[in-house]
């Protein structure tokens, strides 16, 4: 007899994240693809014939993560430009979500890079251009959040964050280029002309993992945006109650 009012109350108390069903589907697809990438990579693709050997398998994770991190920063860059042009708060939210994920993926790049470095060269950390660039990107995009925390006014915070996201994104390739001035790095060139002769099965494993990682990013981004929308709603309610 109380069920109707209880249902209504719980609907009010637990608002759904917008578009949660689609997000769940995307995340599930990401999981399937990442798993498939690993299966293909470990059982079907041949073990690397060069000095890298079995440790090369981490490439199916490491490289897609790295590219997804760059994709995230790219999304933040575009969102920042859109914010500066149109001034709509949703672009600011998109920017924050993308930078947060970019940072997460950059950290994973370094973790997998450290593991690989240990296996391939016997050192935990090498000051190697790509890894170093991700380290600097981590510092740079951490500063993005410090900057946000230091600005009180909401629209000014969004504006400065957008400005910084633009400058930071432009700086990443410059940093990568500059690190090449330092003594030569150790990073293996797996794809590309001087690569260790990649088998087509390697490529398939890599592409599946890449697709999986991108889907993971899209799913997480949608989740972040949904949560951010709820937070926004909460702030609005708090603000109205506080008046």
């Amino acid at each position: 007899m109380e069920s109707a009012s209880t249902a209504a109350a719980s609907a009010v108390a637990r608002p759904a994240v917008p578009g949660l069903a689609a997000t769940t589907a995307i995340l599930a697809a990401a999981g399937v693809a990442l798993l498939a990438g690993l299966l293909v990579g470990f059982w079907i693709a041949p073990t690397d014939a060069s000095t890298l050997g079995f440790s090369q398998k981490i490439f199916y994770f490491h490289a897609p993560i790295a590219e997804t991190a760059l994709l995230a920063y790219g999304v933040a860059f575009v969102a920042a430009l859109l914010y500066l042009r149109r001034g709509a708060a949703r672009y600011d939210r998109l920017g924050v979500a993308a930078v947060r994920l970019g940072l997460l993926f950059s950290l994973l790049v370094m973790v997998t890079g450290v593991i690989w470095g240990r296996a391939a060269w016997g050192v935990w950390w090498a000051w190697e251009p790509r890894l170093t660039t991700f380290l600097i990107a981590c510092l740079l995009y951490s500063a993005y959040f410090v900057l946000r925390g230091a600005v009180e006014d909401e629209s000014r915070r969004a504006t400065y964050a957008a400005l910084f996201a633009v400058v930071a994104f432009v700086d990443v390739p410059i940093t990568f280029f500059a690190t090449r001035f330092l003594p030569a790095g150790l990073h293996p060139v797996v794809l590309g002309p001087s690569g260790s002769g990649m088998d087509y099965r390697d490529l398939i494993a890599f592409l599946i993992s890449m697709a999986g990682m991108t889907l993971l990013f899209v799913g997480l981004l949608r989740l972040e945006l949904g949560i951010e929308a709820l937070r926004e709603e909460l702030r609005e309610i708090k603000y109205r109650l506080g008046r």
Partner: peptide, 9 residues
């Protein structure tokens, strides 16, 4: 904090 990472290159 914002200046140093950008000035590294």
């Amino acid at each position: 904090i914002v200046f140093l990472p950008l000035v590294i290159p």
